[in-house]
Design a protein around this nucleic acid. Structure first.
Lengths: 150, 150
DNA sequence: ATCCTTGCAAAGCGTTTGCAGGCTA
DNA sequence: TAGCCTGCAAACGCTTTGCAAGGAT
């Protein structure tokens, strides 16, 4: 337990350092949002983070959690899990394949990889879990966006 | 070209078969939405599909496209690309790792896989493309959902 | 003729934004 | 004190839904 506490303290210290470096003011709300997320293992929604923050800071608003998480994301303190930002996208290609997603422009590229197809993933999962579609999603930067960036 | 036309015709025939099997009425809108998606390579949004459908069927409404795509998805005629359905989810774990997502209950599990980490993906991509985060997202069914299903 | 499907309109939900007051540095 | 951050409220965009008319079987 004391090991976990030490790890938490270290992460909070790193958090404060990053805030200072990035010019983010250290408010009680930000600290609590970060603490909630560090202690979470369930990849919570904004709503859920808000509910947990309210236990310690009952006057915190949902918008603040939204804004806080966005600024954390920009400063690489937290990650938004999964999901291609924007609206839903569809394809009729039902053959098993993978996707490369450009993090900047949202371009989606079909990807075929023998290496990916061949991986034994089942053994990495807990018992009882079943892979329905071993679809892989890679995030990156496409050629066009990389050029316009540089 | 005639090869592609034949392939298209075959897919449309399979489409009609599936519709009949599933008791989906064959309407001009459904046929056109499917045709647009079969011919698309860019994983279009609902909005984009709608715009393309309008070229042939100018009175088609956006809601119909939404409803059509949803029913197609249920009948495994098309796939929704990427994205964990529902609201955004966050984590503070910034170490590189992968995710298993339960297609049914939305559970997200952190996944560590030497096999995944070691894959050479760069060579599968077109020139100029760069992988920012080689994060893999697997979709499947978790133990709990599989049990309650059976 | 039946009843599924469509178009229209309105509502729903998650998320973002403008503003005035409060708090950090 | 200066300016960022917060809470409140309203707006926003994407998606879903209720309803009556239209169309497929």
């Amino acid at each position: 337990m004391s090991v976990e506490k030490a790890a938490l303290a270290e992460k909070l210290a790193a958090f404060e350092r990053t805030c200072e470096q990035q010019g983010l003011r250290l408010t009680s709300q930000r600290l609590e949002v970060f603490r909630v997320l560090v202690q979470a293992t369930d990849h919570p929604t904004v709503e859920t983070v808000h509910r947990r923050v309210l236990k310690k800071l009952p006057r915190t608003s949902l918008d603040t959690v939204y804004r806080t998480l966005s600024s954390f994301e920009e400063n690489r303190l937290v990650t938004r899990v999964g999901g291609i930002p924007g609206s839903a996208r569809f394809e009729a290609n039902m053959d098993p394949h993978h996707h490369f997603v450009c993090a900047q422009c949202g371009l989606i590229l079909d990807l075929h990889s023998q290496a990916l197809d061949g991986i034994q993933l089942k053994r990495e999962l807990p018992k009882g879990y079943e892979i329905e579609r071993a679809q892989v999603e890679l995030r990156g930067i496409c050629a066009k966006c990389r050029d316009s960036q540089a």
